[in-house]
């Protein structure tokens, strides 16, 4: 698979390390009321869809950026690649 890095252009997927579902960007509040349940769901439960999947890849053999890759799990086709930083900021993180 080739991942079209937003800054570096097309790179081979072997340069990256795969983490998993991009929902992991949204870490629950560690001081919330329901923190045990929220953390359990965050760490262990997955949607695991057949079809479009947003996922985190880390460019370990490259610029060490985290990417949010939108990829089809039935065809391996990649339709969108964004810097995870931009995705997190658009959700109001680290402003």
């Amino acid at each position: 698979m080739i991942i079209n890095h937003p800054l570096l252009g097309p790179r081979d997927a072997t340069e990256f390390v795969y983490l998993g579902d991009a929902s992991m960007i949204e870490r629950p509040n560690g001081f919330g009321e329901d923190v045990a349940d929220a953390m359990y769901e965050y760490v262990y439960l997955r949607d695991n869809p057949a079809g479009e999947h947003r996922e985190l890849w880390y460019h370990e053999q490259g610029d060490r950026s985290w990417l949010v890759v939108t990829r089809n799990t039935l065809t391996h086709e990649i339709t969108e690649v964004a810097l995870a930083r931009d995705v997190a900021r658009s959700k109001g993180r680290s402003k």
Binding site: E41, L45, R46, D47
Partner: peptide, 17 residues
């Protein structure tokens, strides 16, 4: 297909395919 089938029952699993 666990994830696919159990999602029909509204369940999320500690599983990735």
């Amino acid at each position: 297909s666990s994830g696919r089938v159990m999602s029909l029952a509204g369940m999320r699993l500690p599983i990735e395919s």
